[in-house]
Design a protein around this nucleic acid. Structure first.
Length: 487
RNA sequence: GUCUCCUUCGUCUAGUGGUUAGGACACCGGGUUUUCAUCCCGGCAGCAGGGGUUCGACUCCCCUAGGAGAUGCCA
């Protein structure tokens, strides 16, 4: 039987990096096994699901280049792929459970449940439903039903025995039935199913062969097995994925930094780098290789290289990956990558004019080794496009040099710059070296005032090239401004 | 509290009874260099602890500790 896996997000917020990683593991597993990858939307919580979150799912995976074989937007033979559109299916199967005695109606009010919980907390006894309605006398139950009392449907967990399942990476996991959440709700008052019911029914009907989901689901594994048993269905294989944590070892969340895929996109990270990095969170290929394209992972991914323990999301390493990817880009690719960021700053038109496109081509070699994320281009090359402000005139003065010397240097520079046009990089450098000698300063000391004058910063891309792109006129203007600033 | 799972450098990991415990990020040195980066070279740093099993344990078993998750009419 061919592999069929699914990613089943609930559209209740932005796509979290952890969820995205679960998705890509499923995707790569499907691809590597020539199987199907399915997107299923779990929107059974009507109060929390939003169309924006739905859109974010589409945007995120489009950006990453992850496509599903079956899903709400592309259709497929096992649809609909949105749970709220499968309402009747769940109702029908819940009814079946009622009839076979695996489930029962519970008329307890949320107030009673809250009190129960409070009491349990106070007495430090086990938390959970006390199964009151499971033991309801037939006539009592009938009375409540006749009165139209609102109810939920609960699954009747066996009171004895244990339930086990085999996890593909963790091995056998078993739990005493008495330790399973006592009779979880499977149909809510509003008639919608809870995750447990919907997920089991859909995985069965959609013929899912492997359930690859986060380890936070491990403890409901036995419950799901019990549900499959109650329906007399063959359960799929399970594979619980290690979780993604923040630096403090807690579940990755907002306070650790960016956590949604879209944020990384907005900061100028490359989809390829993000994909590569998060794949390595819980998966490895061998003892050294860590660069993989999406295409490679589609062939190389194997479940047996998944690790058991959770992984900490390391922003620094992601940065390093992104820098590596940027450095490996061709000039044209990088130009295409940074142009939107330049346009966003108003440095170039969108799309750029021919002249601007030429400038972009020229700045590529200056920024390629220096970018970590695309958005850095504004800070690195901004001086080419707009006037610079020198915050602190002191920065113009090189180390071990005084103001008077700096002014002298700048004046000398003003003299020689007009003669530089048309000369090669090496020729210009030679001229600078000569002048530095004449002024009895080091080359660095000669160039620093010039650097700050034209870029506004003590750190910049290589000066000679920068100056060339800027043009003689603007370079002179800025030198004069710097002289004025020191006078 | 109870249940379940996990545990190799700070972090991500390789390792499946015999290795000087390997790689990467970070960090620290050094080199290249007009600054910043890049790049190159070098270094620091780890098998949670205790018992077994075995000729021999990072590798197998048990216990302890630590961590995480679950314990919802959220997924």
């Amino acid at each position: 039987m061919s592999v069929r896996v699914r990613y089943a997000p609930s559209p209740t917020g932005l796509q979290h990096i952890g969820g995205v990683r679960t998705a890509i593991f499923n995707y790569f597993f499907a691809k590597a096994n020539k199987g199907q990858f399915i997107l299923r939307i779990e929107d059974t919580d009507q109060t929390r699901s939003t169309p924006e979150a739905m859109q974010d799912i589409y945007n995120t995976f489009a950006w990453l280049g992850i496509h599903w074989d079956e899903g709400p937007d592309v259709g497929g033979p096992k649809g609909p792929y949105v749970q709220s559109q499968r309402f009747d299916v769940y109702k029908q199967y819940a009814q079946q459970l009622l009839e076979t005695g695996h489930a029962y109606k519970c008329f307890c009010t949320s107030e009673r449940l809250a009190e129960l919980r409070e009491e349990q907390t106070k007495t430090k006894s086990a938390l959970g439903y006390d199964r009151k309605c499971r033991l309801l006398a037939a006539e009592e139950r009938q009375k409540l039903e006749d009165a139209g009392t609102p109810y939920v449907i609960r699954f009747a967990i066996p009171l004895e025995g244990a339930t086990a399942f085999h996890d593909e990476i963790l091995g056998d996991i078993s739990k005493e039935n008495i330790d399973i959440n006592p009779d979880p709700v499977i149909i809510k008052t509003d008639g919608f199913p809870t995750y447990h019911l919907a997920n089991v029914i859909d995985d069965h009907l959609m013929e899912i062969t492997h359930v690859m989901r986060s380890q936070e689901w491990i403890s409901s594994g036995p419950l799901h097995i019990l549900l499959y048993k109650a329906f007399e269905w063959e359960p799929p294989k399970f594979c619980h994925l290690p979780m993604v944590m923040g630096e403090d070892g807690q579940k990755l969340s907002k306070r650790h930094g960016s956590t949604s895929a879209i944020e990384f996109r907005q900061k100028g990270y490359l989809a390829e780098a993000v994909l590569n990095y998060i794949t390595l969170l819980g998966w490895s290929y061998d003892d050294s290789r860590e660069f993989f394209t999406k295409q490679e992972l589609e062939e190389l991914f194997t479940m047996d290289k998944l690790s058991k323990s959770s992984a900490v999301f390391n922003y620094q390493k992601l940065d390093w990956f992104n820098g590596q990817y940027i450095r490996r880009m061709s000039a044209d690719e990088l130009a295409a990558g940074i142009t939107p960021w330049l346009a966003k700053e108003g440095f170039v038109a969108d799309p750029p004019t021919a002249e601007q496109a030429g400038i972009i081509q020229q700045i590529i070699p200056l920024v390629q080794e220096r970018l970590i994320v695309f958005s850095d281009v504004a800070g690195l090359a901004g001086f080419i496009f707009r006037d610079v402000a020198i915050e602190d005139p002191e920065t113009l003065i090189p180390k071990k040099t005084d103001k008077a010397t700096t002014v002298k240097i700048l004046q000398k520079l003003k003299e020689i710059v007009p003669g530089l046009a048309g000369k090669s990089h090496d020729e210009i450098e030679a001229i600078f070296r000569e002048d530095a000698e004449k002024l009895e300063v080091k080359l660095g000391a000669l160039l620093m005032p010039l650097r700050v004058a034209i870029t506004g910063s003590t750190q910049s891309p290589p000066l000679i090239d920068s100056m060339h792109i800027l043009g003689t006129e603007k370079t002179l203007e800025r030198i004069e401004k710097a002289i004025a600033l020191l006078s």
